[in-house]
Design a protein around this nucleic acid. Structure first.
Lengths: 203, 203
DNA sequence: CTTGCCGGTGGCACTGGGTGTCACCTACGG
DNA sequence: CCGTAGGTGACACCCAGTGCCACCGGCAAG
């Protein structure tokens, strides 16, 4: 089915196949749960063989994460291009906002992805591996700006805690439904950068 | 071999077997890498069957994590017992320090465990699942203190970023060798609580 | 038109983690 | 002496992931 006859370079066809696999996987995982769906079922739904699934996605989890590598690369580019006189935390915040500035049409699929990632234990576990790449990029940026080693305390801490802020913003956005992703990121980074001012209010 | 003939309640014997399995696993993983060692090899080294390994440890990763559940429970207890007039961040910091106050004799094994957890991708991934429990406990504490819902922004953010600070401290302690775990935790929490003051210095 | 290369594909066998089931054995109370 | 309960080992099974090979399509060179 779906013999894509349009003029299409190999890379495009490959991308299209991968997108079809990912969509089939997302739908099945959302409907039945990540663990309950086998690769054979995803492959069947996508109209390909089990072996081809692995060639395109590499891992069951990768079918959900999709092109996350691209996000990391873009994040790296934004940090490298940040104005030199901008405060470090502000540049990290701006990069996170920009890399997560999705078109409205992409939001439903993003919700689907993130709900799975934050809900399914196996995917949550896999996230740590992906986030490690993000942390390396951010830590390198902070290290460059502050003139210390990338594996020193402050670069590492800034990287992990800003990423914590970003994922917390995602959780909030996912759970609430009314709040914007940008708003959630703004609130989270404000709290973090100011040392949690709301904890100092009379509680 | 090793017929443990001493008077020993069932629970104690079970604990002793589990400790033997964990030690064998840690040694093999350290020597050859986590992925390169099969469960059969661990089971052989521990003098038990493959099936028994799973009955005691549940998962390959659990053999490395050991009794982490106990840490979470103790952390929860410390947070519940924290003085009511203590600032929230201070109580979280104190709980993290206390729960990680290991006896000097336990430090080598802790190093072995943490090096594996922070180095091996599969174990790093698994850590996210364990940390989720920690985050729930800390977020509940913050929520109780501030009078907001546990899934609101500030409790979640405090939980994830303090945990980020703790793991960063662990990384520092592991990499340096001279710095104390307590010192690393102190530095990380200081930076976090003050909103990263060292970033405001002329860089 | 034929030949040879090449990328995507499917099939197959294999490894390895994890689970369910059953039989056995051993310790313990009646 | 018997019955039970918990730990154990052996076996069969499922599923993710990998390596290998054979096939088929297009495409360029001869």
């Amino acid at each position: 089915m779906g013999t894509v006859t349009e003029t299409m370079v190999a890379a495009d066809a490959r991308e299209e196949t991968r997108a079809r696999i990912e969509q089939a996987a997302l739908d099945l995982f959302t409907a039945q749960g990540f663990e309950a769906v086998t690769i054979d079922e995803v492959a069947d739904a996508a109209g390909i063989s089990r072996r081809t699934f692995f060639r395109h996605c590499g891992t069951k989890a990768d079918a959900v994460w999709g092109q996350f590598d691209g996000h990391v690369v873009r994040l790296e580019g934004m940090l490298a291009a940040a104005a030199a006189d901008q405060p470090v935390l502000a540049s990290v915040y701006a990069a996170y906002v920009e890399v997560n500035d999705y078109a409205p049409a992409d939001l439903p699929m993003l919700r689907q992805r993130m709900r799975l990632i934050l809900t399914e234990p196996a995917l949550l576990a896999h996230s740590q591996v992906r986030y490690a790449d993000v942390d390396r990029v951010v830590a390198a940026h902070v290290a460059r700006r502050t003139g210390v080693a990338p594996d020193a305390l402050v670069p590492r801490l800034v990287a992990t805690s800003t990423r914590a802020a970003a994922t917390t913003a995602f959780e909030l956005w996912l759970a609430d439904g009314r709040i914007t992703l940008g708003t959630a990121l703004h609130q989270a980074f404000d709290e973090l950068a100011a040392g949690f001012p709301s904890l100092r209010l009379p509680g």
